[in-house]
Design a binder for these strands. Structure first.
Lengths: 200, 200
DNA sequence: GTCTATAAATCGATAGAC
DNA sequence: GTCTATCGATTTATAGAC
């Protein structure tokens, strides 16, 4: 299978640069406050050129979400086989918190209906979301069978709680407060997530 | 002290209606997607009339946040004295989750700088925020002294974690999934928040 | 204070030349 | 495909009559 012509590879590099800019702007100001003009200025091309690559602002956001899901899937795949299911879940959650704290986690408003429609219409997005959910879901069930994760919690609740760490406002607030460094913040948020606020 | 003239009371009622509409729209679609036209249409007055009561869209949002903080302060004040500090914290958190699940919790984007400026310039907002934080903070320290809340967690982390339940996306996702009713969702989210995902 | 009408600015998207 | 220039729609905010 060919890797594509030189021309196609140049195109790919440019689109990668676009998605990187979108990723950063989504993390920085969110979908509604991100403007296509900013994306174009950030990449260093004209806005009309942007629209030759992606047909809409929603498509730009969807591309960024696909890429972050690809990276998530890669992190999942790279988990050492000798780790327990619980350790794998914790490691992936830690990674998500680190990415978010670094200002590189794109976040989308769940209320925007046109955006939701674009996402749900993207096969790449849906497939990746299902792949990630299935893999994490299998680990969750295994961790519950191991007695590591509370078997009294529906697996759905555990999955959503882990997913939500990617857009948790607590790390950002703690960073803004300025009393703790990034590693301490990640450790403490992980501890509250898995250990809870109550004394054990 | 006079309660104000009839004219002033009519004004107050109207402004209450405006704030209610803003509160609902903020909860439903967020600040960026909420338009001043919608607010006016919802209240049933012209947009120009709205601007006679509140000078900007940001001021509308600030008024809604002040009201929800007033209600939070009231819930805090109404906690029975015979409850433990931990039980009080849990009860306030439960209330916040119930309000959010009912679609009545206004949520603001923490990224919007003009909005942040308006909020930080509002003495009513700042005073209420400090009042609520101080009261919850005192309970948190008491609960840690009682051994109910993990004394190894900085009080700041506990406070932000409790605050974040007001904008937690997990209840909404669980509701959308449709497998659980509201009470089950609140109970489960509270359980993960205070008990953690790990088996105890 | 309430209205109609509109200003002023922004933003997503496109036309058309090269 | 890239550019400049601009359209068309939306939205915040205001002017001015009543």
């Amino acid at each position: 299978m060919a890797r594509g012509s030189f021309r196609e590879q140049v195109l790919k590099v440019r689109e990668d640069a676009i998605v990187s800019a979108v990723n950063r702007l989504l993390a920085e100001k969110g979908f509604d406050l991100m403007t296509v003009d900013e994306v174009a200025a950030d990449v260093g091309i004209a806005k009309a050129s942007l629209y030759k690559h992606f047909p809409s602002k929603e498509a730009l956001a969807a591309a960024a979400m696909v890429r972050v899901l690809q990276r998530t899937a890669a992190v999942i795949d790279q988990q050492p086989a000798d780790r327990s299911a619980f350790e794998k879940i914790e490691a992936v959650t830690r990674w998500a918190l680190e990415v978010q704290l670094a200002g590189e986690m794109p976040t989308l408003p769940s209320q925007n209906s046109t955006l939701r429609a674009e996402l749900m219409g993207s096969k790449a997005y849906i497939d990746l979301l299902m792949q990630v959910s299935d893999q994490l879901g299998a680990w969750i069930q295994q961790a519950q069978a191991d007695g590591a994760i509370d078997p009294g919690l529906p697996a759905e609740v555990v999955l959503y709680t882990v997913f939500a760490r990617a857009c948790d406002p607590v790390p950002g607030f703690l960073k803004a407060a300025g009393q703790l460094d990034d590693k301490q913040i990640v450790d403490l948020v992980l501890r509250t997530c898995f250990g809870g606020l109550r004394t054990r």
